[in-house]
Design a protein around this nucleic acid. Structure first.
Length: 774
DNA sequence: AGCACGCCGACT
DNA sequence: GTCGGCGTGCTC
């Protein structure tokens, strides 16, 4: 028997199946989708079995071990990996591994073998257990042949276990064994007990063993799940749906196999109720559902709602869980113990076998696109899986992406609207012209009107949310004498100032130095940071309103695990008047006592080299304004800008998606941007800018030669981030109307460069439907 | 990616 | 005469 195996090595020349002989003892156990350990050259690697065939062939090595008792990937997911590979131009192994929880990946080490070992080194131990110096001694000895190093593969997964103790015969325990008698007494009340609870009476492991050997009790080891939400009780609430919600639920239920529906509902229109109800119906039919949410809105509140509705039958997958917890959730799905999977992007690969509905909430969120290989978009994967399972996909948003809305307009997606808003009208939005503030001599980040409004809320014991649109501006350092900015020595970017530790960091390569006291170019002491951070804004606020109680949420205050939730909880409990933060506070928050929302620098991102900048600004302003007045109190929003007449500011402040869409689509058409064209970004990086440019030109020429129908090319041009980690970068934009014709051509061009890339002459990266253009 | 193999300079 | 530099090529 032969196994076809994809090995864990992300290299283009290895991106194909390798065949292995299946030893007889594995023949009845092996299945496609299993993880295996295989010899590969002089190494030993993790592999995924993608197929098995009968017969045998000369020169095959036997595979070494099966790492799973049953397949980790279903046939569907194996198929899907091919689709992901072809549409994102990644390696098959990358696609396969992206579908597995991190706990199922492995690390590689060397086991030390031999008779005569140096002092302190023992046979059977692993190389990585020793300090660096010892490691090099061992490696040197291995080279001489004095020590043998055997490659080993270390599993990361851990399964928490406990013992279950069952009473068989109480009379077998002698009366003088006091502790054992005590345990028996407990077991008479509860005949099956966990060791973790039984041991609390002070019973030792030896005493338990004694009881077992007397056959008074039976002891079995069981797997335990680390349940991070163990304490939530299931409550089946009957939700009263309004008319448009009920219509939406109906439409989802009646949807055709593989159909995509766009659910457009303003903030507060009750999309979550629609999700709960539609998923409830699917579950009642005996099928399963996936709900994807952006990481940021996967809040405890949100999770609690689903846990209450579906109890133990929900698996939650998000980054706040430990690797082990994620693995436990994943295994619950695999064992068919859940009906509903709620999670961030990668939850789209949940190994469900009978999916009846897939929902992407906040479908416009760019976090659904993975920015490293495999560069997949969860929306595309969702649509593929829905076709496979012949079930609908629901894309929900208050501010749909232009791509999705355009498809709904064309009838490719079915359009559903939720028009009614709980708590009445959207809050009024005041546009503040910051140019006028500046003319009045106000150099702070706050307009007079906003200060007055904040003061008013504090007096009324209501709460405010202040959002700094941080993207697009950073605090950098410049010399006031010579005008030199402090840049990263490895990348073409300014270093960013971090108050925490008084240091300068490069956000791209990790380079960091302490804040210098004088300019490295001219020795002047007039070196100073520019720009605005949340800390500076907090200071400005306190200068003006000293009694304000502020909770600041940014990278510095939320880096610790759980601090995010903690800060929100404190705000919810009324421990502060103002919640001040960056993008992270824009979504998912629902505090009834918030009646004022302020957006500072609403237009800060408009100048970025990104055709989606206006769309993002629209989404941000609309979403954040919707945060005000969620409770019984009326709310309002203040949007500060230097571009008060810009159509994005005007339409967002009127909550007018249609007008924004119409204007933006015109610009997209003129600029040949999505959704009119599908865009692919190809980036070339090399030590020499000339090599990067030359390779880009060569690629461009080859692409033109391939004559892909209805396609065009922009570039090559230097990337906006022209140097990164000491590599110079050029890029090429390929636009097409026929992506399915483009992918195979890109694959061919990529393959043709395999040798040069493996020789590290340059790096090539292909990003289909990019969201980052740097 | 790793790792071995192999063919030229520097050293005991 | 041997150690080790890293260019080249392969991994079922």
């Amino acid at each position: 028997m032969i196994a076809h195996v994809h090995v864990d090595a992300p290299v283009i020349t290895i991106d194909r199946p390798f065949d292995y002989e299946v030893p007889p003892q594995f023949e009845t156990l092996i299945e496609p989708g299993m993880r295996v350990s295989v010899p590969f050259g002089s190494r030993r690697l993790l592999g995924i079995v993608t197929g098995v065939s009968e017969g045998t062939r000369e020169g095959l090595k036997p595979l070494e071990a099966l790492l799973d008792e049953e397949s980790s990937l279903t046939d569907e997911l194996l198929d899907l990996s091919t689709h992901v590979k072809e549409t994102t131009l990644c390696f098959r192994s990358s696609a396969l591994l992206a579908m597995l929880p991190a706990a199922l990946k492995v690390s590689y080490d060397k086991e030390i073998k031999g008779e005569t070992l140096p002092d302190g080194v023992r046979a059977g131990t692993h190389l990585s257990e020793y300090p660096k110096e010892t490691q090099s001694i061992i490696l040197a000895l291995a080279k001489k042949g004095d020590i043998l190093l055997a490659p080993v593969l270390k599993e990361k997964r851990t399964v928490k276990t406990d013992l279950v103790i069952e009473l068989i015969d109480a009379t077998l325990i002698p009366a003088r064994a006091k502790k054992q008698q005590e345990a028996i007494k407990l077991l008479k009340d509860v005949p099956r007990m966990y060791w973790s609870s039984l041991r609390q009476i002070g019973l030792s492991r030896a005493q338990l063993q004694k009881m077992e050997s007397l056959r008074a009790v039976k002891v079995t080891e069981v797997e335990l799940n680390r349940d991070p939400y163990a304490t939530i009780e299931q409550v089946i609430e009957t939700v009263e749906l309004n008319e448009s919600q009920a219509k939406a639920v109906h439409a989802i239920r009646d949807a055709e196999a593989g159909e995509t529906l766009l659910l457009h509902g303003v903030t507060g229109s009750g999309k979550t109720e629609v999700y709960l109800e539609a998923i409830g119906q699917v579950v009642d039919d005996g099928k399963q559902a996936i709900l994807l949410v952006p990481e940021i809105s996967l809040t405890p509140m949100m999770v609690k709602r689903f846990k209450r509705r579906f109890g133990d039958r929900v698996a939650v997958l998000h980054s706040a869980l430990s690797q082990g917890e994620k693995y436990d959730e994943w295994r619950k799905i695999k064992r068919r113990e859940v009906d509903v999977v709620v999670g961030a992007r990668s939850a789209i690969f949940a190994p469900l076998e009978n999916i009846g509905l897939i929902i992407l909430d906040e479908e416009h969120e760019t976090t659904y696109k993975q920015e490293e290989n495999p560069r997949y978009h969860a929306r595309d994967v969702a649509i593929w899986r829905a076709e496979y399972h012949e079930c609908p996909v629901v894309l929900g948003s208050a501010t749909p992406s232009l791509e999705s809305y355009a498809r709904a307009q064309k009838g490719v997606y079915r359009y559903l609207q939720l028009s009614e808003r709980y708590g009445g009208e959207m809050p009024p939005v005041h546009i503040i012209d910051m140019r006028r503030e500046l003319a009045k001599g106000n150099t702070t980040m706050f307009s007079e009107d906003l200060f007055v409004a904040i003061n008013d809320r504090i007096a009324k014991k209501e709460q405010c949310v202040i959002l700094l649109n941080r993207r697009g501006f950073t605090t950098f350092v410049m010399c006031r004498d010579c005008g030199e900015g402090l840049t990263c020595p490895h990348c073409a970017v300014n270093l960013t100032y971090h108050q925490h530790g008084d240091r300068l960091k490069c956000h791209y390569c990790g380079y960091e130095i302490g804040m210098p006291s004088k300019c490295p170019t001219c020795d002047s002491k007039k070196i100073k940071q520019f720009g605005t951070g949340t800390q500076k804004i907090e200071t400005e606020l306190l200068n003006r309103i000293p009694e304000a109680r502020i909770i600041r949420m940014d990278q510095d205050t939320t880096s610790r695990k759980g601090s995010h939730e903690q800060l929100l909880k404190r705000f919810e409990d009324g421990e502060a008047d103002i919640l001040l933060g960056t993008q992270m506070i824009a979504k998912g928050l629902d505090f009834p006592n918030v009646t004022l929302v302020g957006v500072l620098a609403a237009d800060a991102t408009l100048g970025m080299p990104d055709f989606r900048a206006t769309e993002r600004t629209f989404q941000l302003v609309t979403q954040v304004a919707g945060r005000a007045g969620r409770g019984s109190l009326p709310g309002e929003a203040y949007v500060q800008t230097y571009n008060p007449d810009h159509y994005v500011i005007e339409t967002a402040s009127e909550h007018d998606y249609e007008s924004f869409y119409a204007r933006e689509m015109q610009l997209r058409q003129v600029g040949n941007h999505p959704p009119y064209w599908y865009v692919t970004l190809v980036t070339f990086a090399a030590e020499s800018p000339l090599v990067a440019q030359a390779e880009a030109e060569l690629f461009a020429a080859d692409f033109v030669e391939a004559h892909v129908a209805q396609s065009r090319l922009n570039g090559p041009m230097p990337a906006p981030l022209s140097k990164l980690k000491n590599l110079f970068r050029y890029q090429l934009f390929i636009k097409t109307k026929h992506p399915e014709a483009l992918y195979p051509v890109l694959a061919t061009l990529q393959q043709a460069r395999a040798k040069a890339i493996s020789k590290k002459e340059y790096q090539l990266s292909i990003d289909v439907n990019p969201y980052v253009f740097m």
